[in-house]
């Protein structure tokens, strides 16, 4: 039997040996982007009343689609859990992962991923019901902690409690929505995840004022878009789309004024960004001259995206904090378009 199967195996190996096509080309030929997002976190990726996915992470997918096709709607979304996200990316099921993913050393190297930048600087925090009377994470010795499995938060939590000589009882949970259900049922005393996720979760409760987010932030969680390793052109597309969004905010380019600024701006970098002057190397990525105009008119600049989904006037109600522009004391700092 083995002898009979052998030619098949050899044939399959040869057929299989054809190298994976360049993602940029594949996506262009396919005509739409396949983007992996969360299964539902208010503000980052959640379906609206009509079932259309909206949020901070979703808009990054849309921006990349606008870069490639001039149309932010040419995206197909896959909803991924903490468990399925990396395999979906590596197996080619999606082209881009935009799902609150923390940039860490082992993910970058061992899991063969490439992080194309940071679009949200986050940190892990704790949320407790107010009536528990807890004011600091240091008071949490012996508490039951609801935690999403398959994330960095799980490891951070173990580290933090070990470091402070405290014990806890883990209540592992698969998805954010489940975490909320179980936390509100009182199965655990405290829910821990990224501070942005806590704010989003708190916004989803009936009475947000009944819950406190503790002051301790126990980790650094730089979240960003992820692509497969070894596909540099594709990573460049994502990285510079993100840079364009951040730079646009820095230079005051908004969805409303981008068309007029493309003609009228005197700032040489803005002119290069918006295609009024030639940007060297643009052709190497196969980008149109006015690609950034499509992006910003389609989804707005970084600040606009933030305010639309996460800002003070949304249920999530987050301050810019670390995510403010570098000029305002934040960490958002776009590499120059030159």
């Amino acid at each position: 039997m083995i002898r009979r199967l052998l030619p098949l195996v050899v044939a399959a190996t040869c057929l299989g040996g054809i190298a994976q096509a360049d993602t940029l080309e594949t996506v262009r030929e396919r005509g739409h982007l396949k983007c992996g997002i969360n299964t539902g976190v208010v503000g980052f990726a959640a379906p609206d009343d009509k079932g259309i996915w909206r949020g901070f992470d979703v808009d990054l997918c849309r921006a990349v689609a606008a870069t490639l096709f001039g149309d932010p709607d040419k995206v197909k979304y896959s909803n991924l859990t903490g468990k399925t996200r990396f395999t979906a990316l590596r197996s080619g099921e999606i082209d881009l992962l935009s799902r609150n993913t923390t940039w860490t050393f082992s993910r970058d190297t061992d899991l063969q991923l490439t992080f194309a930048g940071v679009n949200y600087y986050d940190g892990q925090g704790f949320m407790v019901p107010k009536n528990l009377g807890v004011k600091s994470a240091k008071d949490l010795d012996g508490a039951s902690v609801c935690i999403q499995t398959g994330t960095t938060t799980e490891l951070n939590l173990a580290d933090y409690f070990r470091q402070n000589g405290m014990t806890y009882k883990a209540v592992p949970i698969e998805t954010t929505s489940e975490a909320l259900t179980i936390y509100l049922a009182g199965r655990c005393d405290v829910y821990t995840t990224d501070a942005s996720g806590l704010a989003a979760t708190r916004a989803a409760t009936k009475n947000p004022d009944a819950h406190d987010i503790l002051p301790e932030i126990i980790s650094k969680e730089p979240l960003g878009p992820v692509v497969r390793q070894g596909d540099d052109k594709w990573a460049d597309i994502v990285r510079w789309t993100l840079n364009a969004l951040i730079a646009a905010e820095e230079f005051g380019v908004t969805a409303a004024n981008v068309k007029s600024m493309a003609g009228s701006s005197k700032n040489p970098e803005v002119r290069r960004l918006l295609g009024a002057e030639e940007l060297q190397g643009r052709a190497a990525l196969g980008l149109k001259a006015r690609w950034a105009v499509d992006v910003i008119s389609g989804v707005g600049n970084y600040g606009e995206i933030f305010e639309r989904h996460l800002g003070k006037n949304t249920p999530v109600g987050l301050a810019r904090g670390l995510n403010a522009q570098w000029k305002n004391g934040g960490l958002m700092y776009a590499a120059p378009f030159r």
């Binding site: 903490g82 990396f86 993910r107 061992d110 499995t149 398959g150 799980e154 490891l155 949970i173």
Partner: peptide
Amino acid sequence: GYMDLVATLGGITLTQTG
């Protein structure tokens, strides 16, 4: 969220190590 074989080896270990 009961940590049986699938949840430990086939769950968290899977995602943490890839």
